[in-house]
Amino acid sequence: MSRTRITSFLIGLLLLASGPLMAAEYKLDTEGQHAFIQFRIQHLGYSWLYGRFNDFDGSFTYDADNPDKSEVEITIDMASIDSNHAERDKHLREEDFFHVKKYPEARFVSTSFEEHDDDTATLKGDLTIKDVTRNVTIDVEHVGHGEDPWGGYRRGFQGTTTIKLKDFNIDYDLGPASTHAEVTLAIEGVRQ
């Protein structure tokens, strides 16, 4: 074997060996329904109305040795909104709220991830709803990670944020206690 081939072979081995040090990519486990996007908003200031989006997809990368390089991308089918009331959901899909015929998807793309020492992190990114994109901050908690019973490897996070409806051109009057929605993302990813 020539010296050039030996050198190429050794470089290839080094690149393969360094593979695990790179960020791992995880696909959201939406098929097994181990990922959720839920929201709650006050109803007239008397109680909380809860709902969720049933259809969404996405992925994230994470490297425990270099967590600040983590990235997240999620796409939500806005017509899949489910507040446990068919007539309300129909109204939420119309122009007063999400106008899903014109804006069928919402999208979140991360811009930064800052991990803290207590299994929490701060995730920032661009959230697009309707025709508006705003930077939002999500408070993240590591839930856990490890091998699953099917030979895969999973990692889970939970994040919460609060969004102002008017920031996304949702200006329907729900009363003074109902101007913001709290959003929770419970994300479990399967390493690819």
Score class of each variant (00 low, 15 high):
residue 3 R to G: 11
residue 4 T to F: 15
residue 5 R to L: 15
residue 5 R to I: 14
residue 7 T to C: 12
residue 8 S to K: 11
residue 8 S to D: 01
residue 9 F to I: 12
residue 10 L to Y: 02
residue 11 I to N: 08
residue 11 I to M: 13
residue 12 G to V: 11
residue 13 L to H: 01
residue 13 L to A: 05
residue 13 L to V: 06
residue 14 L to I: 01
residue 14 L to V: 02
residue 17 A to N: 03
residue 19 G to I: 04
residue 21 L to P: 02
residue 21 L to C: 02
residue 23 A to R: 11
residue 25 E to G: 06
residue 29 D to W: 07
residue 30 T to F: 12
residue 30 T to E: 15
residue 30 T to V: 15
residue 34 H to A: 12
residue 35 A to R: 08
residue 38 Q to G: 13
residue 39 F to E: 11
residue 40 R to I: 10
residue 41 I to P: 04
residue 43 H to G: 06
residue 43 H to P: 02
residue 44 L to I: 10
residue 46 Y to F: 12
residue 47 S to A: 15
residue 49 L to C: 11
residue 50 Y to V: 04
residue 51 G to F: 08
residue 52 R to N: 06
residue 52 R to S: 07
residue 53 F to I: 02
residue 56 F to D: 01
residue 57 D to I: 14
residue 58 G to E: 10
residue 59 S to C: 07
residue 59 S to V: 11
residue 60 F to R: 02
residue 62 Y to S: 08
residue 62 Y to R: 10
residue 66 N to P: 00
residue 66 N to L: 12
residue 67 P to D: 00
residue 68 D to T: 03
residue 68 D to F: 04
residue 68 D to H: 03
residue 70 S to R: 08
residue 71 E to F: 09
residue 73 E to F: 09
residue 73 E to K: 12
residue 74 I to C: 00
residue 76 I to G: 04
residue 80 S to F: 04
residue 81 I to M: 14
residue 81 I to R: 13
residue 85 H to Q: 12
residue 85 H to P: 00
residue 86 A to R: 15
residue 87 E to H: 12
residue 90 K to V: 00
residue 91 H to W: 10
residue 91 H to F: 10
residue 91 H to V: 12
residue 93 R to Y: 03
residue 93 R to M: 04
residue 94 E to T: 10
residue 95 E to F: 11
residue 95 E to Y: 09
residue 95 E to M: 12
residue 96 D to P: 04
residue 96 D to W: 03
residue 98 F to I: 07
residue 99 H to C: 08
residue 100 V to D: 11
residue 100 V to F: 11
residue 101 K to S: 02
residue 101 K to I: 00
residue 102 K to V: 13
residue 102 K to P: 10
residue 105 E to N: 14
residue 107 R to K: 14
residue 108 F to E: 06
residue 114 E to K: 14
residue 114 E to C: 11
residue 114 E to N: 15
residue 115 E to K: 14
residue 116 H to S: 11
residue 116 H to V: 09
residue 116 H to A: 12
residue 117 D to I: 10
residue 119 D to M: 14
residue 119 D to I: 07
residue 120 T to L: 06
residue 120 T to M: 06
residue 121 A to N: 03
residue 121 A to K: 03
residue 121 A to S: 04
residue 121 A to Q: 00
residue 123 L to E: 02
residue 125 G to V: 09
residue 126 D to V: 03
residue 130 K to P: 14
residue 131 D to A: 13
residue 132 V to S: 10
residue 133 T to K: 09
residue 133 T to V: 04
residue 134 R to S: 01
residue 136 V to I: 15
residue 138 I to S: 02
residue 139 D to V: 09
residue 141 E to P: 01
residue 144 G to P: 05
residue 145 H to D: 15
residue 146 G to D: 09
residue 148 D to G: 01
residue 155 R to L: 14
residue 156 G to P: 13
residue 159 G to N: 05
residue 162 T to C: 00
residue 163 I to S: 05
residue 167 D to M: 01
residue 168 F to Y: 13
residue 169 N to D: 14
residue 169 N to P: 03
residue 170 I to E: 01
residue 171 D to G: 06
residue 174 L to E: 10
residue 175 G to T: 05
residue 176 P to E: 06
residue 177 A to S: 06
residue 178 S to R: 02
residue 180 H to M: 03
residue 180 H to W: 05
residue 180 H to R: 10
residue 183 V to A: 07
residue 183 V to T: 04
residue 185 L to P: 08
residue 186 A to W: 01
residue 186 A to F: 02
residue 186 A to Y: 00
residue 187 I to L: 13
residue 187 I to G: 00
residue 188 E to Y: 02
residue 189 G to P: 00
residue 189 G to S: 05
residue 191 R to M: 13
